[in-house]
Structures are given as C-alpha cells and as structure tokens.
Amino acid sequence: MTAQPPAWLAFSSRALDALVIAALFVAVWQGLYEYAGDSAITAPLATLSYAASLVKTSNFWGHAQATLVAFAYSLVISIVLGVVLGLALGLQRFAGDVAEPIFVALYTIPKVTLYPLILLIFGLGVSAKVAFGVIHGVIPIILFTLNAVKNINPVLLRTSRAMRLTQWQTVTTVLAPAVMPELITGVRVGFSLTMLGVLIGEMFASQRGLGFLIVNGISMHNVPMTTAVILIVVVFAIAANGLLLWIDKRMHRAA
C-alpha cells in the first residue's frame, strides 16, 4: 500500500498543473501574435480587455441570446429524442442490433454537408439552427442510452418481473437509475456536439448569433471582435464540460 498524500496537497498540485497548462496556452497565443501581428490575431491581454468591454454591450447579448436560445432548444430536443429512442431500441434487442451500426455510421459522417438540406426544409432562421444542432447532438445520446440499457444487469429486470412491476414502474424505478450514469455521459458528449452544430450553422448562413459574430469579425477586419468571441465561446464550453464531467464522475462513482 502506498501512502495517500493529503487531499489539500493533491488539490494544490492539480491546480498547479492547470496553471502551468494555462500559462503554456497563453504563451503559444502570445507567440502566434508576435508571429502574425494585429491583422490576424489579437494579443491575449488586449483580447481580455476587449472581451470585458464587449460583454457590457447590448449588441453582444443580443447575439449571445440568439445562440443560447437555439442551443437550449436543440439540447432539450436532443436529450428527449435521444433518451426515448435509446430506451426503445435498447429494450427491443433486435431493433437495437439493427439500428446501432446505422447510428454509428451516421455519427462519423460529415453532417455539415447536410446543412443546405436543412436550410431548404426549415428556411433561414432559428429552426434550421435547432435542427442542425439536434442532428449533431442526438446520436451520441441515443448510442450511450442504447448501450446502457443493453448492458444492464439482467438480474435487475428479472427482479422487477418477479415483483410484478408494471412497465412504467420498471422504467422509472429500475431502468432509469441503472442507466443514469451512462446517460449523463451521453448528455455531456451531446452537449458539446449540439453546441458545435449550432455554431457551425451560425457560421455558415445566419445574421445572428456568436458564430455569425466570429465570421463577421473576420470579413469586416474586426480581428479583436473575432478573437474575443472565440475566447468567450471556448471558456463557456470548457466550463460547462467541466461541470458535466464532475457530475458524470460522481454518478459513475455512486453507481
């Protein structure tokens, strides 16, 4: 047995690691700036101050709201649709085995090529962004849920039959808690991909949203704007993922 270092020491060394990585990242950024100059990228400190003034403008929040609304809709639809389909396909063994490789194949194709089709169906606007976010986010949620149901301990299901639970009771009291950890992992992956989908949608064809601001900044030669919005988006993504990762780990440990 090795002696465990005290918790505060482990925590401070992890914080130090994070600090070193952040410092490396800022150094690379500064290096890129020294190499390419103001016309291509803004220096870290200047970006930070630009971002600080940007978040005080109502214009920024209008775009941020457009992105967040589309993102929230697509995330909710992805989760509901993904869980329902994943549960159904997981419980129907045959249908699940038929569908799983199809979803895996859909997961790895470049879905961005489908965006014109979605634009033609939904028209320019928030519904196209939502649909595009959903086709990115729903598949991992389906796959994680499906696999969680498929790999569930059969004793649990046999017990619920022995106890004569109704279908609904089985789902709510046995199935749901058993698949929850995997489901959270699926939602975490789905969260990131949904956001990716919404942002790509905004970058390609949109007049609103943070993706639009990023592309617009480049075409208007407003590099500080682009760099600052990218920073804000990336910080948000990492923070949200960190939170979900923390819940994810707790769930898996509890299970």
Partner: peptide, 18 residues
C-alpha cells in the same frame, strides 16, 4: 477529457487570418 467539448470550428476564421 475536455478536448472535444471545444467547438474547434470557431477557430477556423482565425486560421484563415493567420
């Protein structure tokens, strides 16, 4: 662990500028 949570395509316009 958090690498793929970053929507990398937002960097693409910056790469074009670079």
């Amino acid at each position: 662990a958090s690498y793929y949570s970053i929507p990398f395509f937002v960097f693409y316009p910056l790469l074009i500028a670079l």
